Computed example of a mutant assay.
Amino acid sequence: MSASVPTDAVAPPTRRYLRRHSLTVRITHWLNVLCLSCLLLSGLQIFNAHPRLYWGKFGADPDHAFLSIGSTSTGNELHGYLQLGSLRIETTGVLGVSGEDGTPTARAFPTWLTVPSYHDLGAGRHWHFFFAWLLVTNGLVYLVHGVLRRHFRRDLLPDRDQLAPRHLWREIRDHARLRFAHGAEARRYNALQKISYLAVIFVLIPLMVLTGLTMSPGLDAAFPFLPGLFGGRPSARSLHFITATLLVAFVVVHVVMVLVSGVWNNLRSMVTGRYAIDDEGTES
């Protein structure tokens, strides 16, 4: 006696691979990873030379810094601190005072967070400028490719339905609960991804480049309007630091989302361009 087969049985999901990222996008992505990593570490080396941030055209008085990382001494002991406005936080061992070699040393950021690891402002600037221009060149290649291949319009510009307040709120709740799109919905970036990518590409990175150029005395002489755009070189330096911090925050969230939404699938798509989609089973 044979078993009956339900007529409403659901077939298992089928897996297929889509081409998600072009070769140019993949190459520029990994170059950006390299450039931003070296820019961050060399930038912290430069920041260590004067670990204070100011607003306005002039910035030399430590009492007028809105952010500072420093140290104080009590007897033979050094104490590190991070001060933001009137708020002071003890940070000995990490910021202000660190001692990877066993000897407490006054430095804003520890040696394991700077390039080079030893104190060398000149070398830090050389590293920083080299990877800054590499980032700019790489970004221009990505922009030209995006325009010619309609990458921005096709993949990064949010659809009207994605910008609806109800849809955005649902995506925020789904991300908070670590719920991610599957099947046909996974073919395209969600609204939060598109908005954050566009903000990085067209707001944060251009702002970081412009504020970096403003800190160059030679470029200020050639383009005297640059300091005025940001209210002075000290303000440009502060915005440069804040922008870099926002980029680090974006990268941290981006990496976390990659890990929890399918690390191998996401990594494969950025290495080979192939992204796996599991189509939901259909009734048979």
Rank of each mutant, 00 (worst) to 15 (best):
V5Q: 08
V10Q: 03
A11L: 14
P13G: 10
T24E: 03
R26D: 00
H29T: 00
C35R: 02
S37G: 07
C38F: 15
S42Y: 04
G43M: 03
H50Y: 15
H50F: 15
G56I: 04
G59P: 02
H64A: 14
F66E: 08
S71C: 04
G75I: 11
H79G: 01
L84N: 05
G85V: 07
S86A: 14
S86W: 13
S86R: 12
I89K: 13
E100Y: 06
D101T: 05
G102E: 00
T103N: 08
T103Y: 11
P110G: 02
L113S: 06
T114Y: 05
T114N: 06
P116V: 04
Y118Q: 15
D120W: 09
L121T: 08
G122V: 12
F129R: 14
F129C: 11
F130T: 10
L134P: 05
G139L: 02
G139T: 00
Y142T: 00
H145K: 11
G146W: 05
V147H: 08
L148R: 03
R149Q: 14
D159M: 10
R166W: 09
L168T: 05
E171Q: 09
I172L: 10
I172A: 08
R177K: 14
L178F: 13
F180D: 13
E185F: 12
E185P: 14
R187W: 09
L198T: 03
A199G: 12
A199M: 14
L207E: 01
V209T: 00
T211N: 04
L213Y: 02
T214W: 04
A221K: 13
A222H: 08
F223Q: 03
P224Q: 06
F230D: 00
S235N: 05
S235I: 00
V252Q: 10
V256H: 15
V260A: 07
V263P: 05
W264Y: 12
N265W: 06
T272Y: 06
G273E: 01
G273C: 04
G273N: 03
E280S: 09
G281K: 05
T282M: 11
